[in-house]
Amino acid sequence: MADITATQDGSGANRFLHWIIHHPIWAFVVIVFIFFSVMNEHFFALGNFKNILIQASTLGLIALGMTLVMINGNIDLSVGAVVALAASLTVDIMGWPMFEGWGNWQILPGVLAGLAAGVLLGALNGFIVWKTGVDAFIVTLGAMLGVRGLVFVYTEEQSFFAMNFAYSDFGASSLVGLPTLALIFLVFTALVHILLSRTVHGSNTYAVGDNREAAVNAGIRVGPHMMINFMIVGFFAALAGITLSTQMGASTPNLGTNFELWVITAVVLGGTKLTGGAGSIIGTFGGVLAIQILRNGMNLMQVPAFWVLVILGSILIGVLFLDKQLNRKGAEELRL
C-alpha cells in the first residue's frame, strides 16, 4: 500500500512528525540506540553493529513473512518448529553418503530440501485455513505441536553436525564489508517491502485483512491469496533455520523454541495490527531492531538474562499503549 498522506502539502518537519506517528517504533529505536551508546563504551562500535544485524537476521527473516500473514488477519505459530525442521533436514541431508563426492555442492540438496519443507508446510497450513475455515491460530497451533513432534521423530532426539566446514564458514563470512547473513536479511527486507507496497499482491494483502467480505465481493481469490502468504512465511522460517544452523555448524531438535513469540512481538511492536489490515515492513524492521538492540545492549551492560525478559515484556505493552495514545483523535473522540 502506498503511503497515504493525510495532509497533502505538509512541510518537511510536518511530514517527519506524521511519519513518526505512524512508525513510533523508530523513535523508540533511536532512543535506545542513544541510551546504550551513552551508557556503554562497547556498544557504539562497528563490530557490535554488525553483531546486532547478524543476531537480528534470524528473527528478522521470519518477521518479514509473519508481517504479510498478520496483515492478512492470520497468524503462524508453527514458525519455530519449521526452523528446527529445516535446520535438521539441511544439516542431515548434506551429510548423506550419496552426495559424498559432490564437494561443496553437497550443501545444495540439503538447503533445497530444507526450504522446500518450509514452503510445503506453509502451503499445508494455508490450504487447511482456506478449505476448512478453521482459524489460523488453531491450525498453526496444531502445526507447531505436530511439526515439533516430527522433528524429534526424524532426528531421534539427536543433534546433527555439519561435516562440511564450508557450511559453517558461510555463517561467519562477509560480503562487501557486511556479514553475509546480515546482507541476506537486508536484501529480503527490501524485497518484501517492495512486494507489500508496490505490487497487486501487496495491496490485496491489506484488503483481505481489512475487510475480507469486501475483498471477496471485489473478486479477490482470498483462499489462494492467503495460502501464498503462508508459503512465504514458511519459506522465511526455513531460511532462518538454515542461516541459524550455519552460525552454529549444527542443528538441534530444540532449535527455534519460542521463536514464534519473539517474531510476533517484533511484528506487533512494528505496528502491525493483530486483527489485520494494517502494518508495514518498515515498522517490522524497526521492531526487530528494537528487540535486538535491547538484548545486545543489556547483555553488554551485564543485565541478568531473566531481567531482560521482564524489561522486553514491559516495553511491548508500553509501546503499544503509546501507539494508541498517539493515534487518538483528542477531545472530539467518541468515548467507548
Binding site: 500500500m1 502506498a2 497515504i4 505490487t199 497487486v200 495491496s203 490485496n204 491489506y206 484488503a207 481489512d210 475487510n211 467480505e213 469486501a214 475483498a215 465481493n217 471485489a218 473478486g219 479477490i220 489490515g277 494494517a278
Partner: peptide, 22 residues
C-alpha cells in the same frame, strides 16, 4: 464493502488494480 485503511483509489479498483510487469 470497503477496506477502511486503504486509499480511495485502491478501494475503487479493488480486485482489478491496473498492473505493470511483475
Amino acid at each position: 464493502s470497503l477496506a477502511e485503511e486503504m486509499s480511495v483509489a485502491e478501494n475503487i479498483f479493488l480486485g482489478e488494480l491496473p498492473r505493470k510487469k511483475w
